[in-house]
Design a protein around this nucleic acid. Sequence first.
DNA 1: GCAAAAGTGTTTGGATTACACCCATGC
DNA 2: GCATGGGTGTAATCCAAACACTTTTGC
Lengths: 232, 232
Amino acid sequence: MAYKIKFDNFFSYSFSLDCVIFGYKEGKIYALLIKRAMEPYIGEWAIPGDLVYPDEDLPDAASRILTELTKVEGLLLHQGQTFGKPDRHPQGRVITNAYFALVRIDDINAVADSWAEEIQWVPIRELPQLAFDHNEILESTFEQLGQKLKREPICFDLLPVKFTLNEMQQLYEYAFKADLDKANFRKKIKPIPLISLREKQTNVKHRPANLFKFDVKGYTELVEEENYMFRM
Amino acid sequence: MAYKIKFDNFFSYSFSLDCVIFGYKEGKIYALLIKRAMEPYIGEWAIPGDLVYPDEDLPDAASRILTELTKVEGLLLHQGQTFGKPDRHPQGRVITNAYFALVRIDDINAVADSWAEEIQWVPIRELPQLAFDHNEILESTFEQLGQKLKREPICFDLLPVKFTLNEMQQLYEYAFKADLDKANFRKKIKPIPLISLREKQTNVKHRPANLFKFDVKGYTELVEEENYMFRM
DNA sequence: GCAAAAGTGTTTGGATTACACCCATGC
DNA sequence: GCATGGGTGTAATCCAAACACTTTTGC
């Protein structure tokens, strides 16, 4: 059965990469969407993506897309699912692989350029109808983000460098669609090495919360020396 | 930046699918490998895989490969990672997606045909050097299997239909490279709906163990009616 | 009886839960 | 003072680990 069709005839596929950019703000997780400035699906909202260049490795293509859109460099990218329905792209057989990046919304200044007419941060639970099979891609990728939030300390890539414990709690509440008890949440995160800054929230009309930052070095040591496993 | 190169020039990639077939026997998890009967890497051990046909969806291609090799049909297939280093295939840009299937070793009778000179079940922790980047693919896929074994009742796809609790325990011990306490293991699986058959092991030189089978209907009801979550 | 593995019960300590209470700030 | 969230303590409960013990089979 195999290889009945001449091997070379198979070099007629295209391969793209869709880069889901997640951000977090005021209790909601957002995805960065673009309004497409080109066919197909011109004028519709979509995940930023591009074809993979002939000599480009997949993570490099994901970095490139992220950097072009947000000017952010050097971020860790996570591979998601691959989508390849024969008819998913109107112009031919294009298989696409989702990648996702976690960014601090306030640190980046995404601008629409040749990519897009317009860009927009949309709460992941309030998505409009998207181009291609991008609703499916985004849902599956968010699901995977949820899995990773449980076992890797990547919430700190979404939170501001200095954050309050309540901001952290709300991130998990949104991701898992669950209400958490404040006291219990704080007991649970006790083993995570956080540096308590001697700084407080400002401009709040209630008792200001303490600011923390993630202790990357302490975390690495914990993992290496005491076999610590992050779990939420 | 985007689309500087003419779109059509991009339709020069090929896309393949590698289908990792996992089986379980006597305390070890195995993968089914083929000895390649064609170039490239002729004569070397590899994961069975094939190019995806132009009008074929990815899960269909995975099913096709599985069926051609093992004659087993209708199994659930799980998507794994995608591998796309530009130089991973000597004959051009071939991006590949791993899929994995779980089978009962004794139920299938895999035969080498046009695919392969020879086929072999190899314990996943004792792999030889493989063709392409297949060592990397297999390790990543086994890692993913481990993740799924923790949160989905898929161990029953690997175990014989009638199995002993010790066989089940040993599967988890191999997957997680850990020794488990018998009494505690049995307490842990208490909530999983198993049907205790009125049958015992035969041909053992010690007290024969009771045989069980997974209660699919009971499991589905538990999930739907009581929001049960499988967890190991 | 003995070896080998099946199968079950008890104890203990640590984690999770629910809930109550006090604290600091703006107005 | 009061509203609003920040921040902490306690008791009850559940769960997991450690370990001991009994049972059933072949030889």
